Simulated assay, not measured.
Amino acid sequence: MNIVCRSAFHLCRRPSIIADGGRGVHTSCRRSIVMPAWVIDKYGDNDVLRFNENVLFPIIHYPNEVIIKVHAASVNPIDVNMRNGYGAKSLNMSRDPLNVKMSGTEFPLTLGRDASGTVMECGLSVRYFKPGDQVWAAIPPWKQGTFAEFVVASVNEVSLKPKSLSHTEAASLPYAILTAWAALVNSCGLSKEKCPGKRVLIIGSSGGVGTAAIQLLKAWGAHVTAVCSGNAFTLMKDLGADDMIDYTAARLEEQLRTRELFDTILDNIGGTHEELALQFLKPWSGASYVTLVTPFLYNNDQLGIADGMMRTGVTLASKVMKHYYKGIHYRWGFFAPNGPSLDEIGELVDAGKIRPVIENVVPFTDVPQAFKKLEAGHARGKTVIQVVDPKK
């Protein structure tokens, strides 16, 4: 069978594609084909980040994968957590064995979840995309990431980039807005049909997920109350929030008591906010509380997979039942890669209903500085990594 390699690389650097008995597609690269990437060889603080110009070029293992040339990426809290080793046991169990070295280690590990770039090569079963397409994607944390010149992604993780956004702008949105989507849609059952008239409270509204959730909910017609510090009020109002609560001005509980009860609460902070927030949902009305701060990965790290899963299951079940008897749906929210949802989000972006919130743009050489900025806290938007200089 003759298979044409669809690639924009110079002929001498072009990977060859080989069929694997109908099972998948493998890109057979010479070991001399390398790319620059930011990697870690162990877990720790910012000192473990290492710029490596000789990372092996990614390969297509399965027929539904594409290789993307990354123009821009962005930093998310998950990147800092993964650098520190948080969730390693769970993520390593989920990693594709074809992408792990024979020794069984995940290192060198490339971080980065967001990408906006150009499709360079497609697996044999890919029909929706072709080389040259401008795309954006959110890569799940169990895969090699986007702080690299190229990345491999499943077509289920990729969508055509909104035409109204540059690569720099597009790279700031996918992971955060898909996390918000998973919490609101998958966990709480909200949608553009069900949102009109709903009252939604967002705790921790000025971060990446919070700013994305505000815009998504407003695009669907919900009434949104944002909890943040007072210096973020201008941003919250600009994004469409109907009401703002400054948690630094007075006790949050006292301020919430002056508001009507809510249909849905999205909690990005967790901790003591959980029990507090649950008091302000409409009882026996199908109201939902969803938190993105869960003990799932922590339990597995501390107790091992089996005991950690058991502890997590018991914790979740007890909380679900406790609040179910009060007429409240208690949920945990987790990021889920979702190309079709990115398609819908892209339509909202091009319609002017969702826009990127970017605080800083740094060159590819300054990835450690981007991590420091995120760890310092109180960001008012995303920090974007400019992998390819748009002026070139």
Results as ranks from 00 to 15, higher is better:
Gly117Val: 06
Thr105Asn: 12
Ala73Asp: 11
Ile59Gly: 09
Ser116Ile: 03
Leu109Ile: 10
Glu157Ile: 05
Pro140Asp: 02
Ser172Asn: 10
Ser90Trp: 14
Gly145Pro: 04
Tyr128Cys: 14
Ile59Cys: 13
Arg113Ala: 11
Ser94Gln: 15
Gly85Leu: 02
Ser154Thr: 09
Lys130Ser: 15
Leu173Ile: 09
Asn64Ile: 04
Leu124Ala: 13
Lys69Tyr: 08
Glu121Ile: 08
Pro131Asn: 06
His61Ala: 07
Asp79Arg: 05
Glu65Phe: 02
Tyr62Lys: 13
Ala72Asp: 11
Gly123Leu: 12
Ile139Pro: 00
Pro162Lys: 00
His167Ala: 05
Asn76Gln: 10
Thr146Glu: 05
Val151His: 03
Ser125Gln: 14
Tyr86Lys: 10
Gly87Leu: 09
Pro140His: 05
Asp133Trp: 07
Val75Ile: 15
Glu65His: 05
Gln134Pro: 02
Ser125Met: 14
Pro174Tyr: 12
Lys69Gln: 12
His61Asn: 15
Asn92Ile: 00
Pro108Thr: 06
Ser103Phe: 04
Leu98Arg: 15
Glu65Ser: 00
Lys101Ala: 13
Val151Ala: 07
Ser94Arg: 15
Ala176His: 10
Asp114Pro: 08
Lys161Val: 00
Asp133Thr: 05
Pro140Met: 10
Val151Thr: 12
Val80Asp: 12
Ser103Gly: 08
Lys130Glu: 14
Gly123Ala: 01
Ser159Lys: 05
Lys69Phe: 11
Thr168Trp: 01
Phe150Asn: 12
Ser90Tyr: 15
Met82Ile: 12
Ser166Trp: 05
Tyr175Met: 13
Leu160Gln: 06
Leu165Val: 09
Gly145Ile: 00
Asn156Val: 11
Ser90Met: 14
Ser166Ala: 02
Met102Ile: 14
Glu169Ser: 00
Gly132Trp: 12
Val126Phe: 03
Gln134Glu: 15
